[in-house]
Design a binder for these strands. Structure first.
Ligand SMILES: [Mn+2]
Ligand SMILES: [Mn+2]
Ligand SMILES: [Zn+2]
Ligand SMILES: [Zn+2]
Lengths: 142, 142
DNA sequence: GAAGTTTTTGATAATGTTTGCCGACACCAT
DNA sequence: ATGGTGTCGGCAAACATTATCAAAAACTTC
């Protein structure tokens, strides 16, 4: 189970004089196996099923590590808790969130991206990041 | 100082068996005089300068009222506190936020709006709302 | 306009997510 | 083994917002 992602984490850890630990591997593995947009609390519950001694603070700390090492992206859909998704080998996309069942549809529209650049440069604004969240009802909840 | 907005609030209040109070008028006036995207805490400080006895909870409660009566829009730029802006007689727009000085540029790009509808219907998704936040540096902070 | 009814208010406690703190602990190199 | 450095788990603290509740204000009815 030695994934490319583990290598990325180990590289980051070595470059910053940190240490690879059982807990960090456990959180990384749980995160990688969890295929979608997961909160810290959810990941904590998953991790503690295999290793009940891992603390919630460690999950938060490791998620911060994963974010800084570019393995994870931090998302905030405005529901009070942050979520995390795979970033390694995943390209940028935006989200449609079903307010009924919580389903999340990912999409990328090149022209939307392009017009954002256009409207930014028109205002002398330099983009560092953006996020587009569309809320509504998915096909099953309509 | 009897604005159209006060009339909107009074209509909403009557329709819901609520009561118009000195505090609600004070918060509404402060909100209307405050021209930009204001947080509850900021508005609280403004209101208490004219009427020091108004409580913070009342400001929160009145902002909720203003939002429900369509006088205000609630915004969340992900910095930990919600902000509010005028909604009455103001059309939809999105925001560019300067991460250096906090300046906010409003914009509306009809094609971005249109392509959102397009990508939604392509996925059988019914939009109820959306928000596009662009983060970066404004022309003065670049 | 007094009495009665309903809603609101201000102060403060509680909430929920995330971060800070700290003593114990693991790991690695001498 | 010993020392040094970084990590861990548990829990306290931070922070914005909401809930609670007795007292006050607003409206209704006479
Ligand atoms: Mn995603
Ligand atoms: Mn705005
Ligand atoms: Zn749904
Ligand atoms: Zn700026």
């Amino acid at each position: 189970m030695s994934s490319k992602e583990l290598q990325v984490l180990e590289d980051y850890i070595q470059q910053n004089n940190l240490k690879i630990t059982r807990q960090r591997r456990a959180v990384l593995n749980a995160f990688l196996e969890c295929e979608k947009h997961v909160s810290a609390e959810e990941l904590y519950r998953i991790v503690t099923q295999k290793d009940p001694k891992i603390g919630l603070a460690t999950v938060y700390r490791t998620l911060s590590l994963l974010t800084h090492s570019q393995l994870a992206s931090e998302l905030d859909f405005g529901d009070g808790q942050k979520r995390y998704e795979h970033r390694y080998m995943h390209s940028h996309h935006d989200h449609m969130i079903c307010t009924e069942c919580g389903k999340i549809i990912e999409f990328n529209h090149p022209l939307i991206e392009k017009f954002q650049e256009e409207v930014a440069s028109r205002n002398g604004f330099t983009i560092t990041s953006h996020k587009l969240d569309i809320f509504g009802l998915c096909s099953e909840c309509r």
